[in-house]
Design a protein around this nucleic acid. Structure first.
Length: 596
RNA sequence: GGCCCCGUAGCUCAGCUGGAUAGAGCAACAGCCUUCUAAGCUGUGGGCCAUUGGUUCGAAUCCAAUCGGGGUCACCA
């Protein structure tokens, strides 16, 4: 039973009867009464004063009286200016709570129950450098949205499209060949992705040096950038790669494998995973037939120089080239091909989500528009999950200039901070070493993940590496701590909670009522979060719940309570609280420890 | 310059399908551990919600303009 529907039905009937209106229940907007006022739900009566032909106060009184008679669940009301606050019977909330507490996995729908299949692409790393903070946001966001969509009963296929070929990969390869002295992850003790990243930086240094030399010899900067020998060699290498040159391919495979070994470790630490991997080396030629198809359909046209393009000026976009004059593909060509390929491979997908930074907003607008024009009706189900950059106090991160926050360093640093703080608290001395290590990881990663996911994805966010992420206040560990506390109480309670039966006529404490009301919102929060692809909705909700619990904890002692039915009720109440906290945190990919 | 996104406490962020006195955390200050975990709780100070106009009974929220910040406008990816 949904309380809001129940109420708006009554209200709409009452309104229509009183003022000769034809309002429908779904048009009634009810809101939770603000904490400072008495009541559970509030109806704003301003919209009805015209029909009532009287003052807002009087209108409120009229509606209030009528509602009191019409719905026995409503016990009293009060009017403040144009706000009609009414209270629901105490046992109404108690019975709602009973439903919440006995619904297994409250708010989470059974797996695959919606029948909708969603493909979600995220991560999409390049194999020429290790992951950095920007990737971390991408990975956490993608994984979290996938999990939240699963709570709505969707069948989610998580995919990763690895950018494993191209000029930037050749840069690392060439630099290693020239200056690498046969270094390997084994010989250096470096993580594979870091080793390859090292040579990407070396390439850039050497390149800049060569450009500088050419400029000093009298070339313009532009000429120098084109003529630098190391750049020419790189381009040559890319051609050899495309021609399938055995030696180059072997080098490419060897170095990519180092990177994959490294990524594997980072992904595991991040707690993300994929159902299917795509590699651009396999997909980069896709899409050329589509261009021919589009030409035949007159969606595309050939330009004088033989390149193929589409005119999107009528859509407020520009002309976009989809095939170069030499017949090779551009970025969007393979994106077209890949999308079509995926829908062929998984005919049941009802939605395709791309988790990609907002610097590509325009690209995806164009991509979806072209798919639409080509007549693929699923183009309307494609969605660009766009997120803002992570900025440092000095501004944007740049891989080549070394102004990046490395993902592995960041994670290790967080775990180390968690370790120091946890050990300093002295609460875990008797924990077995294994549990300690696990706990440091859980807390450190929880702090990092929550820090990133609590902010609205579409907004850019600021990260200051000099100030380590907080462990107090609105943070992951705060929520984890609330959960651990509840678990601790439940352990001390020492009796099975399944058998607890709660009397209907229980008199609720103010904080208990707040907790129930907040719990009641959880399914709606999950839905909203899924609809908007915004994990921050869940994050901020869970924080509020944990905060409420802490206040409750401070005001009402649970185990010391004399009255046994109140005591049992409270046990049950905090148990559901911990379940919701756990479910919510899992949506964010954050684990919650049993004790800390 | 065209288009897109953002501007809320000193800092990091909520609130944005219009509603009551704009909320948290951090930082500062003052309290609370003989009581189920003080990673906690309570209190104080801190705001022309970028600016101006419009719509409305009512605007942080919607619309327009302006100013600031970012992104993007490749036969790069």
């Amino acid at each position: 039973m949904n309380i809001e529907h129940f109420l708006s039905d009554t209200i709409s009937t009452v309104l229509n009867g009183l003022f000769d209106l034809t309002s429908k229940p779904e048009e009634i907007t009810l809101q939770r009464t603000k904490k400072e006022f008495e009541g559970d739900y509030t109806l704003v009566t301003f919209p009805y004063i015209k029909a009532a032909k009287t003052t807002p106060e009087k209108t409120g009184e009229l509606i209030g009286e009528a509602i009191l008679k019409a719905n026995p669940a409503i016990t009293k009301f009060n009017v403040v200016k144009g706000f009609l606050n009414f209270s629901l019977a105490n046992d109404f909330w108690v019975s709602e709570f009973k439903n919440i507490s006995k619904t297994a996995n409250y708010g989470v729908k059974p797996a695959n129950s919606s029948g909708k299949q969603v493909m979600l692409e995220y991560s999409s790393p390049n194999t020429n450098k290790p992951l950095h903070l920007g990737h971390v946001r991408n990975n956490l966001l993608g994984y979290s949205v996938a999990t939240i969509l699963k709570t709505q009963g969707h069948d989610v296929i998580k995919v990763n499209l690895v950018n494993d070929r191209g000029i930037h990969i050749c840069k690392s390869m060439l630099a290693w060949k020239l200056f690498g002295n046969n270094e390997t992850p084994e010989s250096t003790g470096l993580k594979g992705d870091h080793l390859v990243g090292k040579y990407y930086v070396i390439f850039d240094k050497e390149y800049k040096k060569q450009v500088q030399e050419l400029v000093e010899k009298g070339n313009t900067k532009e000429e120098a950038e084109k003529q630098a020998p190391i750049m020419l060699q790189t381009q040559q290498m890319l051609l050899q790669w495309e021609a399938g040159d055995t030696e180059i391919i072997e080098l490419w495979k060897k170095m990519n494998n180092w990177v994959y070994d490294g990524f594997k470790v980072s992904y595991k630490k991040l707690g993300v995973d994929f159902d299917k991997m795509y590699y651009e080396s396999n997909t980069y030629l896709l899409g050329k037939e589509i261009v021919q198809e589009g030409l035949a359909k007159h969606v595309f046209y050939k330009k004088e120089n033989n390149s193929v393009a589409i005119d999107l000026t009528n859509e407020g976009l520009d002309e976009k080239v989809v095939l170069r004059s030499d017949g090779t593909s551009v970025y969007i060509t393979q994106d077209l091909g890949t999308a079509i390929e995926r829908f062929k491979e998984f005919p049941k997908i009802g939605q395709m989500i791309y988790t990609v930074g907002n610097e590509q907003d325009y690209h995806f607008k164009v991509l979806f528009k072209i798919l639409q024009k080509l007549g693929y009706d699923w183009a309307n189900e494609c969605y660009h999950l766009s997120y803002g950059m992570v900025e440092l106090p000095e501004g944007k991160m740049k891989s080549r200039e070394g102004t990046v926050v490395d993902a592995d360093d960041l994670m290790d640093g967080m775990i180390e901070t968690a370790k120091e703080t946890t050990e300093a608290s002295g609460k875990i001395v008797e924990f077995p070493q294994e549990e300690k290590d696990e706990l440091f990881k859980t807390i450190g990663m929880g702090a990092l993940k929550y820090f990133i996911l609590k902010v609205d994805p579409k907004k850019k966010m600021l990260f200051d590496p000099k100030e380590s992420i907080d462990l107090h206040g609105n943070t992951g560990p705060f929520i984890q701590y609330a959960h651990a506390r509840i678990k601790s109480i439940l352990r001390d309670y020492n009796q099975p909670t399944e058998t607890i039966s709660i009397p209907d006529n229980l008199q609720l404490h103010e904080k208990e009522k707040e907790l129930i009301k907040h719990q009641y919102d959880f399914p709606k929060i999950l839905e909203e979060s899924a609809d908007t692809y915004n994990p921050a909705v869940v994050a901020n909700y869970i924080y509020d719940l944990a905060k409420l619990f802490n206040q409750f904890y401070n005001e009402c002692s649970v185990l010391k309570e004399e009255n046994s039915s109140i005591k049992q009720f409270r046990i049950k109440l905090i148990e559901t609280t911990s379940n919701i906290i756990k479910n919510g945190m899992l949506c964010l990919g954050i684990n919650v420890p049993e004790r800390m």
